[in-house]
Amino acid sequence: MGTISLEHSDRLYWLGRYTERVFTTLKTLQKLYDRTIDNRSGYAEYLGYFGLSDSYGSSRDFFRSFLYDSTNPNSVAYSLERAYDNGIVLREEISTETLSFLQLAKDTLAKSEMSENTRLSLLPLVDQLYAFWGCIADNVYDEEKKNIIYCGKTVERLDLYMRTGYPYKSVKKEFGRLCKRLKNVPENTPFCCNSQYFGEIEDIVGSAEKYSSESSTALVDLEHLFEPMGAAV
């Protein structure tokens, strides 16, 4: 029954964003965890990406906070709760089966907190998130709704890639993906992009040289991507 309310479109978008935030944060933390085997303070650079100082006594405290502390807005636990909050009011759009993978992910994360081997215990979580996305692809028949979720997912990934210093090649690839998504957004909907901001991102991401010096501008533009035209700051 293809009718989408403003509330649901917003939920669909943020479901995509938060689930992707869980996934990319988890992947990044896994890499950091590996790095801290050789260098115990290897996580400090990551804090810098978010403008945070190192108030953690040890890498152990850092990982506990960024994985399990639901009061830390940059943690996996926090993002997963928000993803679930959005998912639970979208059951009829995304299906019970899809939602169950977010529930499983929550259970896995909670169980992992008690585990002696954090990385090993988190491996199923990545699989569950892949299963979630598989279910979205398979169970959401309405392409318009699916595209809203994917827009959220891609914007989030691009944001995190730019914010956390992913290689230019990855950023460019993700931007290309976002362009495809945006082409499928119907007119007069909240996810029609602001052409001014889009144009600026396109310009910056179009050149490796420009990106290396102006990625922070592109990041700000991305935050404003869905602002209505004329609302530019």
């Binding site: 989408i4 309310s5 403003l6 119907p186 007119e187 007069n188 909907t189």
Partner: peptide, 25 residues
Amino acid sequence: TGSVLVQNDELFVEDNILYHRTYSG
């Protein structure tokens, strides 16, 4: 049932017909 799950703020009455307000206006 393939129905739309709605809350009251997504619905409105116009010309004696009940409507679901969509995100495109």
